[in-house]
Amino acid sequence: MRKKIKAKGTQLVAQIVLQRNIKDFVFIVIGVICASIGLKGFLLPNNFLDGGAMGVSLLLQIQTGLDLSLLIVLVNLPFILIGIKQVSLSFAIKSAVAIIALASLVHLIELPTITDDKLLIAVFGGFFLGAGIGLSIRGGSVIDGTEVLAITVSRKSSMTVGDFIAVFNIALFGIAALMISVETAMYSMLTYLSASKTIDFILNGIEEYIGIMTVSDHGEQIKETITTKLGRGITVFRSDGGFGKKGNAHPDRKILFCVVTRLEVTKVLLEIEKIDPSAFVIQYPIRDTKGGMIKKRPLH
């Protein structure tokens, strides 16, 4: 009996892993296609740049005339090697495959000029490239290795990942302004903003989750209201207070924690205030959730 249960458990794990690998493969394939459309259909014909390693590749292509597909591989190669140590071998292999696939598409496909409008080129070129990068990340790989380098630098210095990427791109666009033109650099900044916002949307979605932590003497009543009236799950932590004369008055005070969407926050706060206007409430954003009573995003 135990062997059957164990075999069934092993089979279930293998099925989950297979489904995850198929989903990752689909994300990476679609991501590579989107990125190649952004590059060949918008940015490359108009000498526009993006941020990160892709921006470096485009800048080198403009200045040297070398094949962009070759530059994409060469520029990202050091980041892949860093990724083996900083992330994992499987991540590095997936990234290498995705980057080689992107370089191959950029070399092989030919797209007609979609538009000559510089604003549309910057916005939609950034959109397609950002979609490609975001989907590749969702698939467990990267086609722009700047974040891998940023993680390495952040671990060895006081800079955060965001700080490093910002400094890196400021330097890149400054070089572009000197070597090409200020106008090109400005449009490239717009491309980068479009790409980064698209990446955020693909990774985080439009429906932002908010964690709400509440400390109140009326914890049971608040818990009952949130679970029954609002239909939201809630977790209770036991705590010990420590402020002023009342610090030890409630050694078994409860902390309530729930996760809601951004649109539900006002409703939850209103119900808490009705019960206890002096309740201590903390809010903070949550990137994603899984399981529980929160609806799972379809692409996660």
Rank of each mutant, 00 (worst) to 15 (best):
1 M>Y: 09
3 K>R: 14
3 K>W: 02
10 T>D: 15
12 L>H: 15
14 A>K: 14
15 Q>S: 13
16 I>D: 14
19 Q>H: 14
20 R>C: 12
20 R>M: 15
22 I>P: 13
26 V>S: 10
29 V>C: 05
29 V>H: 06
33 I>A: 08
35 A>H: 08
35 A>S: 15
40 K>V: 13
44 L>S: 12
44 L>T: 06
44 L>R: 06
47 N>W: 02
49 L>I: 03
49 L>C: 01
55 G>N: 08
56 V>P: 10
59 L>V: 12
60 L>D: 04
61 Q>W: 01
64 T>I: 03
64 T>R: 11
67 D>S: 02
67 D>M: 01
68 L>M: 05
74 L>S: 15
75 V>L: 08
79 F>D: 01
80 I>H: 00
82 I>Q: 03
83 G>C: 00
87 V>K: 07
89 L>K: 13
90 S>Q: 11
90 S>N: 08
91 F>H: 02
91 F>I: 02
95 S>I: 07
97 V>D: 08
100 I>S: 01
101 A>S: 07
106 V>N: 00
109 I>T: 04
112 P>C: 15
119 L>P: 00
120 L>V: 09
124 F>P: 14
126 G>Q: 06
129 L>A: 02
132 G>T: 06
133 I>H: 03
134 G>F: 00
136 S>Q: 04
137 I>F: 03
138 R>W: 07
139 G>L: 07
142 V>I: 15
143 I>P: 01
144 D>G: 04
144 D>T: 01
145 G>K: 06
145 G>C: 04
146 T>E: 00
147 E>S: 08
148 V>T: 03
149 L>W: 04
152 T>F: 14
154 S>Y: 07
157 S>D: 03
160 T>F: 02
160 T>Y: 01
163 D>S: 05
165 I>N: 02
165 I>V: 05
167 V>T: 01
169 N>D: 14
172 L>V: 00
175 I>G: 05
175 I>C: 12
175 I>H: 06
176 A>D: 11
177 A>H: 09
177 A>F: 15
178 L>F: 15
181 S>N: 07
182 V>E: 06
182 V>H: 00
185 A>H: 01
185 A>S: 02
185 A>W: 00
187 Y>M: 11
187 Y>W: 10
187 Y>Q: 09
190 L>Y: 03
195 A>P: 00
197 K>Q: 07
200 D>T: 08
204 N>L: 07
205 G>V: 04
208 E>F: 12
209 Y>Q: 13
210 I>G: 13
215 V>Q: 10
216 S>L: 09
217 D>A: 10
222 I>M: 01
223 K>S: 10
228 T>L: 04
231 G>R: 14
237 F>L: 13
238 R>G: 10
240 D>S: 11
245 K>I: 14
248 N>T: 15
249 A>D: 15
251 P>S: 06
252 D>M: 04
254 K>L: 10
254 K>T: 07
259 V>Q: 03
259 V>D: 08
260 V>T: 13
260 V>F: 10
261 T>E: 07
262 R>P: 10
266 T>G: 06
268 V>A: 03
268 V>F: 02
273 E>Y: 13
274 K>Q: 10
275 I>K: 03
277 P>R: 02
280 F>L: 00
280 F>C: 00
284 Y>K: 13
286 I>Q: 03
291 G>A: 08
298 P>K: 10
